[in-house]
Each structure stands twice: as C-alpha cells, then as structure tokens.
Nucleic acid binder design. Structure first.
Lengths: 243, 243
DNA sequence: CCAAAAAATTGACGATTAGTCAATTTCTGT
DNA sequence: ACAGAAATTGACTAATCGTCAATTTTTTGG
C-alpha cells in the first residue's frame, strides 16, 4: 500500500472504481461472464494492478457485498431512528430495507454468490471478517429495536426465545424473499403477484404472532407506512416512484 | 437417446450416476472445484459422454436440484398426509422439511447457486421448467393444507391476502434460514445458537400471527412435534438422532 | 536538477478447465 | 458374419485465472 497521503487517497479511489465496475458488470452480464480482463479493460488499468487490490475475483464480490451491507445498515439505522413506538420503528426498518433492495439491485445477486462457502472461502480473512462485522452490526440494529420493545413492555418473549432468534426470523424472511425476487424464479406463476407486499404482510403477521404491541389490528400500519415513506425516506421513495 | 429399452434404462442409470457424483463432489469440494474432468474421472466415463447427458456444468446443478426438490416434495407430502388438524399437518411439513435438509446437506448448496440467474440461465429450458414445476408442486402441497384450514374455518385470511402469499412467507423464512445455515455465516457469533429451533419457533409465531387455530398457546406443539417424529418420520428422525 | 533506488504498473505467459468433434469402438439388424 | 448406425473417447481449441519479469513512474538524497 502507498505511503503518502495523496497516494493513499488515490488507492482508495481506485479500489472504489474497481468495485463499482465489478458491480455494474455483475448486474449487466451475471457472475459467469464477470471476468478480470473485462474489469481491467473497463477500469483502464491492467490486470496486474487489479490484483494489487484484490487477490481474486471472489474477493471483489465480498468487498462489493460489504459495501452494500454497510449501505443497508444506514437504511436500517434511519428506520430505527424514527420517532414512534418500537414496532413502528421496526416497520420503518422494513420499509428502509425494501427501498435499499430496490435501489441496489446488485446486492442480492452478490449476496447469493457470497453466501456460497466455496466462493466466500476464496476471499481473504480480512474481508470475510469485515462482512461478518457488517452483518453483525445490522442484526444488532434490528434486535436493538426489539430489545427496546421488550424493555418498554410492548412484547414479552417466551421462555428460551432471544431477541436474536426473532431477529433471525425477520432476517431469514427478508433474505429468502429478496433472494427469490432477484432470481429467476417465476413468482407470478406460483401465485405470488406482489412479493414485496407479501413480505410486509408476513412480517406483520410474525410480529403479531410474537404479541408485539400494537398489533396490526390495533394500529393501521398502512398509514404508518405512508408516514415512514414521507418522513424517513422521502427522497428514496420518490426515486422508487412510491410517492 | 438410446432406442432399446435396456439401453434406455442404462442411460437413465448413468444420468443418476453423474448427478450423484456431482452431488458428492459439490459437497466435498465446493462449486469452484467442481469440474467436468473430475466428474468424468470419478464416473469412469469420458468427458464426451458426460456432455451427451448434460450440455454444461450448470445443467448438472439444475438436474441435481430438481431431483432433491422432488425428494423434498415427498417429505412435504408425507407431512401433509398426517392425521390431525391442518395446523398440525403444517407442523409436520416443517418437521419433514427440516429432516430433508438435514439428510440432504447438498440441497441448499445447489439451491444457492441455481438461484443465481446467470447460472440458471445456462441450463436448458427443459430442465429449467422441470425445476419450476417441482417448486410449483411443492408450494401447492403447502398452500393446500392452508386452504384446508381456511375451508374448515381454522383461519381467516385478511382481505387481499392469498394462501400463496402466506405460503410464500413460510417458504422464504425456511429458505433464508437454511441458506444461512448451509453457508459460512457464523450464526453463533450473531447470537443464534439453535437456528433450527428458531425456524420452528418463528414459523409458529407467523401462523399464530395469521390467527391459525389452534394457536400455539392453545396446543402444545412440542408434543405434536414428538408425535410427528414418531408417527410420520420414524426412520428419518432416528437417522438424524432426534429420537 | 540529476542519478540511483524504490515503488508501481504492465501484459505476456503458464496453468486450468469448459466445451467440441473427428476418429475409434461397440452395438444392431439381417 | 458384416454393413451401417450409434455410442464413446480424449486430444484439441478457446477462455480466463492468477503470476511475475520487465518496464515505467515516482521518490529520495546529494
């Protein structure tokens, strides 16, 4: 790595360029056609220089995913900072995540691949741990809101159930759903015409099931959703045409 | 394809051999080290013969996944055939699926990859459609039980919510969870010590949230689970050491 | 400002592996 | 037994990963 400050800045900048190029290529052509020669060509650096930054193709994927996981974290954080009851804040995080996914269609394409151990294993331990850190932080943001709800007496978890396990449920529901949406599975043929709405509905059913007040029959979460879009994510929801 | 009956049988048998070899290699060495030369070597056929059956590496993956999706369907079916209330039958399907995943650890490794459009796209339309058919059938088995519950008045879905959307929720929860479990994500570090139990708990919370009777506070589903293991999947649960 | 050393950059190269196809072997019907 | 069809083979081409010796650029010290 370069020593001088200016060099270091340029180095970081180039790293960004590589990641963003790879992201674009992944989205345009898919994993199998994403290759180092092309990345070198598009970034206008040589292959050797690319390898100065990343030890292999898969490492770029992990870096890419880390970056977008961090971005997702910002959306979650903004959701969790909303003024309101914990369950409304949870809803805001769901809306935020949904917006994040819509605005970063490459995220789940990368996630799907990086989830594969044989691909993940090729990345350096440093980047592996960085990504794990992101996931951990993001999960913590979500479980924090749940813990607030417990502390304020809005929900009482059964004996032996932890906030992390419930958060895991929220995470897996979202993960599975967005994975399916970003893949080639024909949800329409399966009778799921509006998967994003289904995710929203199912999340509320899950939270209702845990007895997290106010239950969806006690509060109109559709209205809350409108408020979240307007107050927390005005710019993003406009960008997604959800005004 | 061969004309005579015996030849045809042998052809199918060899196709199985190829799939099973690929399955084993995928599990042992991961996707990146799964290669056609190795498959040819292990099956003791030449590469050309392998390509007689499958147009590319990815096609083998899709065939592999189709096969195990069919197998999963059998577990679901057995669960849905259990004597009892629809919600117990749903629980039986969840237990069955969990057993299936435990007994077929390669399934989600393949699923993860095949979910990726760039990999899926390389397979032939025939196999693509076959897999889609499996998914459709499996989803239909699950939503069928839900429809039974609706018909018998055990649950009333809200206006605008279909059985398919709820099934989608069950599916995505399970998919996301097993994907994470079969990947390198360190769930323990995230505070999830028993993800399989979490999946079970979260499913019940979801069904409770939809108001599907009997609710988990009205019936001891732990006991139901014991009965399912004993009555529906005695052999498999013993094999998994869940007696 | 210059020269020597250090650092960064390059792309040709070796190695691996996907997929093809002409040559060979095996099978089938008469 | 034999001709022709079908199946099988593995050497070959092409693509692409990752390396590294040669080259260019930058920095340093006088």
């Amino acid at each position: 790595m370069p020593a001088s400050e200016r060099k270091k800045r340029e180095y970081v900048q180039r790293e960004d360029l590589i990641i963003h190029t790879a992201r674009k290529l992944l989205l345009d052509m898919g994993y199998l056609d994403l290759n180092m020669d092309r990345i070198a060509e598009v970034t206008e650096y040589s292959k050797g220089t690319i390898y100065q930054h990343f030890s292999c193709k898969e490492e770029i994927l992990v870096a890419m995913l880390s970056e977008s996981a961090e971005k997702a974290g910002k959306f979650l954080l903004r959701g969790s900072d909303m003024k309101g009851k914990p369950r409304e804040r949870m809803a805001a995080m769901a809306v935020g995540y949904d917006l994040f996914v819509g605005l970063n269609p490459d995220h789940f394409k990368a996630q799907l691949l990086v989830q594969n151990e044989s691909i993940m294993r090729k990345a350096s331990p440093v980047l592996q741990r960085k990504l794990e850190g992101c996931n951990q932080r993001n999960m913590h943001i979500v479980s924090g809101v749940l813990r607030d709800a417990v502390a304020e007496g809005h929900v009482k978890l059964k004996e032996g159930v932890t906030a992390e396990e419930v958060t895991f449920g929220l995470w897996t529901g979202a993960l599975g759903a967005y994975v399916l949406m970003s893949s080639e599975v024909n949800l329409n043929a399966l009778g799921v015409t509006d998967p994003r709405k289904a995710v929203w509905d199912n999340m509320h059913a899950l939270l209702d099931g845990f007895g997290w007040r106010p239950l969806s029959k006690e509060l109109d979460y559709e209205q809350t959703r409108g408020r979240i879009l307007k107050e927390v994510f005005p710019q993003e929801s406009a960008q997604m045409g959800m005004a």
